[in-house]
Amino acid sequence: MPQQYLPETPSQTAGPYVHIGLAPLAAGFDIFENNFNQVLTQPETQGERITIEGRVFDGSGTPIRDVLLEIWQANAHGRYNHPGDQQQDKPLDGAFRGWGRSCSDFETGHYRFETIKPGAVCGRDGRLMAPHVNLWIVARGINLGLHTRMYFADEDAANQQDPVLNLIELEVRRKTLIAHPERRGDELVYRFDIVVQGERETVFFDL
C-alpha cells in the first residue's frame, strides 16, 4: 500500500488582534503569570549582549504597527538549545533558550529584542554558516508567516562564505539581510528593518 501522508493544516492570517493570544499585555490586559517576551537573556547567559531593533514596512513605506515577530537563534558557541542539534564539540548554555517574541509598538512600529550575538552554526555538508538570527513575522494581511534571517555587518568574512547568502543571486537583495551595528551608550544595537514589499524588499525564505 502506498504511504499515505496527512496534509499540513493550512495557514491563516494572525489578524490584527494576535496580541490577545501571543502577547496579552500588549493587547491591554494581564492574564498569564508567565508571559513570553522579547528578552532572551538571563544574568547567567553566556555571550555578548546585543539589542536587535527595527521596523517592518509595507508596500507604501508605512511601518506595520500590528506585527508580531519571533526569533530563533543559536547560543554564543553556535549551538541550538534543542536535542536535534548534535554539534557535540560546542557547549549548551542552560541559561539560553534561543527564542523570543516581540510586538511592534502600536504608535511607532518599532520592535526590539534583547539577546546575545550567536556563534556560527554548522551548515549542510560541513559548510559553516555565518552567525545569524532566524526571524518569523506574522500580522494582519500576511496569510502565511514570513521567514527571514538577519546577519551581522561586522561578520563580513563569514558572510562572504555563508551558503544561504550565496544562494541569493542578486547582490542588492543579499544586503537586505545584513544588520548594521551602532553603539548607544553601553548598548550594542543592530538595526534590522524589514520591507515586506517594494523597493529594497527583504528576502523571505521557503524553508
Partner: peptide, 28 residues
C-alpha cells in the same frame, strides 16, 4: 479580495532553502 494583503505581500518569489540546523530545530 482580502484587502490588507495587497500592501503586505512580497512581490518577489520566496527563496527556497534546503534545511539546516536553523530550520529543523526550534524552541522547547
Amino acid at each position: 479580495e482580502y484587502k490588507t494583503s495587497v500592501l503586505r505581500s512580497p512581490k518577489n518569489a520566496l527563496i527556497s532553502l534546503q534545511n539546516s540546523l536553523s530550520e529543523i530545530t526550534g524552541p522547547v
